[in-house]
């Protein structure tokens, strides 16, 4: 089934976008997984219309209910990949694939991951954020995937047929259930990634090390900027670059809310969500005319 709009994220930006698209009779699906930053806010006193303030959790839950009441499909499924197809986009979750004419990324601000020494310095020199783009360079080599969730396993799958040996580095987190001939799982906490002009080894906190040609970073769930980078969407300092219409550099893909940076406030997310929704409606309508 082809959706008109798939929105990734169910916070104020994503929900707000869906209210406009659904009311304009665009078939809309919201996919969400991780808790929103909004849910964690104890009380919000600076948002319009709540004389006693409102808890973040209540505002968040009410938003999802509001969308559902309007007829928006809302599914709690983790998105691991967004790809381009001839007629639009394919969004893959851990459960299934969905097709859509447009995509609105409203994934919020990804929880900060612990920074490992050496990662930043070796970006593009063996540290990669995209297995499908950079796997090519590691044919027959030893690579690691950093992470332990579904997103890390999806990246591992992309590398299975290319790399000679893959090590999943959980960096002290629990080992995922995953079995393949050329995959090992290492749960030791990492001290640093070493190498001068390119990745050479992973050094662990217990002073042991593993020789490595490349490291694919895939910690936690796939955030907005990570999904964006794989598609070729412009990003800057971990935010998605959009214009005033919330358009990314890929026609048909919009981003809104905390993942575009700026003011991390509900009002800004709501405004951007509405804009993205209205633009998506226009885009779908202009395409169906052709």
């Amino acid at each position: 089934m082809m959706y008109d709009v798939i929105i990734i994220g169910a916070g104020p930006a994503g929900i707000s976008a869906s209210l406009y698209t659904q009311r304009a009779n665009q078939k809309t699906l919201i996919l969400y997984h991780e808790t929103s930053n909004l849910e964690k806010a104890v009380k919000i006193d600076n948002y319009y219309g709540f004389s006693q303030g409102i808890s973040g959790e209540e505002l968040y839950d009410t938003g999802i209910k509001q969308a559902e009441n309007l007829g928006v499909e809302v599914k709690k499924e983790e998105v691991i990949k967004v790809g381009m197809t001839e007629n639009g986009f394919q969004i893959s979750t851990t459960k299934q694939d969905y097709q859509s004419k447009t995509v609105i990324i409203a994934l919020g601000n990804k929880k900060k991951q612990v920074e490992i020494k050496g990662i930043k310095e070796l970006e593009g020199k063996g540290v990669s954020y995209c297995a499908i783009c950079d796997g090519f360079f590691y044919r027959g080599k030893k690579v690691a995937v950093l992470g332990n969730g579904n997103y890390a396993l999806a990246e591992t799958n992309e590398l299975l047929a290319i790399a000679d040996q893959i090590t999943i580095l959980t960096n002290g987190e629990k080992a995922p259930e995953f079995r393949a001939n050329n995959v090992e799982i290492n749960t030791k906490p990492i001290q640093e990634i070493k190498g001068e002009n390119r990745v050479r080894e992973v050094r662990f906190q217990d002073d042991t090390s593993l020789e490595m040609d490349g490291i694919f970073v895939a910690q936690g769930v796939a955030g907005g900027t990570e999904l964006a980078k794989k598609l070729g969407i412009l990003t800057k300092q971990n935010t998605i670059v959009v214009n005033e219409k919330m358009e990314t550099n890929i026609p048909g893909i919009y981003a809104c809310g905390d993942c575009t940076g700026g003011l991390l406030q509900v009002c800004k997310a709501v405004y951007e969500g509405a804009t993205a929704g209205l633009q998506a409606i226009q885009y779908v309508r202009s395409k169906s005319k052709n």
């Binding site: 970006e123 593009g124 020199k125 063996g126 783009c133 360079f137 002009n197 980078k229 990003t235 670059v241």
Partner: peptide
Amino acid sequence: YGVMSIPTILVFKDGKVVKTFVGVTD
């Protein structure tokens, strides 16, 4: 040129690499 991630954009001046951009860049 040690390219291990694409797209990578290298700026050359006088035959030498003076700047590297990794990933889609503005």
